[in-house]
Amino acid sequence: EPELVFKVRVRTKDGRELEIEVSAEDLEKLLEALPDIEEVEIEEVEP
Score class of each variant (00 low, 15 high):
K29P: 02
L31Q: 02
E46C: 15
R9D: 01
E46I: 14
L31S: 02
P47E: 08
D36G: 06
E41V: 13
D26R: 06
K7C: 08
V8E: 00
L4Y: 07
L27W: 04
P35M: 15
E28P: 08
R9T: 07
R9E: 01
V45R: 06
K7A: 03
L4F: 07
L31P: 02
V22C: 08
V10K: 00
V40W: 13
G15H: 02
E46W: 14
D36N: 08
A33G: 11
K7I: 12
E38H: 07
G15R: 01
L30A: 03
V45F: 07
V5R: 15
K29Y: 06
I42V: 07
L31F: 06
P35S: 14
P2F: 10
E41R: 09
E32K: 09
S23K: 11
E44A: 13
R9S: 03
P47F: 12
L34I: 13
D14P: 00
A33I: 08
D26W: 07
A24G: 07
V40A: 06
P35V: 15
E25D: 09
R11G: 01
V5M: 13
P35K: 14
L18Y: 15
T12M: 14
S23M: 06
K29I: 04
L34F: 12
A33P: 01
V22R: 00
K29T: 06
V45L: 10
E32Y: 09
E39F: 15
F6P: 00
R11Y: 06
E38M: 12
E32G: 08
L4S: 08
D36W: 08
E25K: 14
R11E: 02
G15V: 00
G15S: 01
L30T: 05
E41K: 09
A24K: 11
I20P: 00
I42H: 04
E38R: 05
E19R: 10
L18P: 00
L30C: 05
V45D: 04
R9K: 10
V5N: 07
E38N: 06
E21H: 12
K7M: 06
L31W: 07
A24L: 11
E28S: 09
V10Y: 14
P47R: 11
G15T: 01
A33D: 07
D14M: 03
P2N: 08
V22D: 00
R11C: 07
D26V: 05
P47L: 10
P35Y: 14
L18I: 14
E21G: 02
L18H: 06
I37H: 11
K13P: 05
A24W: 14
E21W: 15
E28R: 13
E38W: 15
A24H: 06
L31R: 04
T12E: 01
V45K: 08
E25S: 13
R16I: 07
L30Y: 07
L27Y: 05
E41M: 11
E44M: 15
V5I: 10
E1R: 15
E41Y: 15
D36H: 05
V8D: 00
A33K: 07
V40I: 14
L34E: 03
D36V: 03
R11N: 03
I37A: 10
K29S: 07
E43V: 14
E32P: 02
I20G: 02
F6S: 01
E39P: 03
E25G: 11
E19P: 01
E3L: 12
E3N: 13
D36I: 03
L18S: 02
E17P: 01
F6N: 01
D36P: 05
T12N: 03
F6Y: 12
V10M: 05
R16Q: 07
P2I: 11
I20M: 09
E21L: 15
I37C: 12
R16S: 05
L18C: 11
E19N: 09
L34V: 05
P47Q: 10
T12L: 15
L31N: 01
I42Y: 06
V8F: 04
L4N: 06
S23G: 08
P47A: 09
P47N: 09
K29H: 05
E21P: 03
L27E: 00
E32C: 13
E3H: 12
F6W: 05
E21V: 15
V10R: 01
F6A: 01
L4M: 09
V5K: 13
V40S: 03
E17V: 15
R11I: 09
E17C: 13
V10H: 01
I37W: 14
K7Q: 02
L30P: 00
I42Q: 03
E1M: 12
D14L: 04
S23Y: 08
A33C: 12
V10D: 00
K29W: 08
V10W: 14
D14C: 03
G15K: 03
E17H: 12
P47T: 12
E44F: 13
K13F: 04
L18F: 15
E3C: 13
V40K: 02
E25T: 12
L34K: 02
T12Q: 04
I37K: 06
I20C: 10
V22K: 00
E44G: 09
I37V: 12
E17I: 15
L18G: 01
R16M: 07
D14G: 04
L27D: 00
E28G: 09
P47G: 09
V22H: 00
K13T: 06
L27F: 05
L4T: 10
K13Q: 05
E41W: 15
L34W: 13
V40E: 03
G15M: 02
R16A: 06
V45M: 11
V40Y: 14
E17L: 15
I20K: 02
V8A: 01
I42A: 03
V5A: 05
L27V: 04
R16L: 08
E46H: 12
R11W: 07
E43H: 10
P35A: 15
E21R: 11
T12Y: 15
E43P: 03
E43R: 11
L27H: 00
V10L: 09
E46T: 12
R16D: 04
R11M: 04
E19H: 12
E46R: 14
L27M: 03
P35W: 14
E39Y: 15
E46F: 14
E3Q: 13
E41I: 13
T12A: 04
E44Y: 11
E3G: 11
D14Q: 03
L18M: 10
V8H: 00
A33V: 08
L4K: 15
L27P: 00
E39C: 07
E43M: 15
E38S: 10
I37R: 05
E32S: 10
E39D: 10
E32W: 10
L30K: 00
V45G: 04
P2G: 10
S23D: 03
A24T: 05
G15D: 01
E1D: 11
P47V: 10
R16N: 06
I20Q: 02
I42T: 03
K13L: 05
E3D: 09
E1Y: 13
P47D: 07
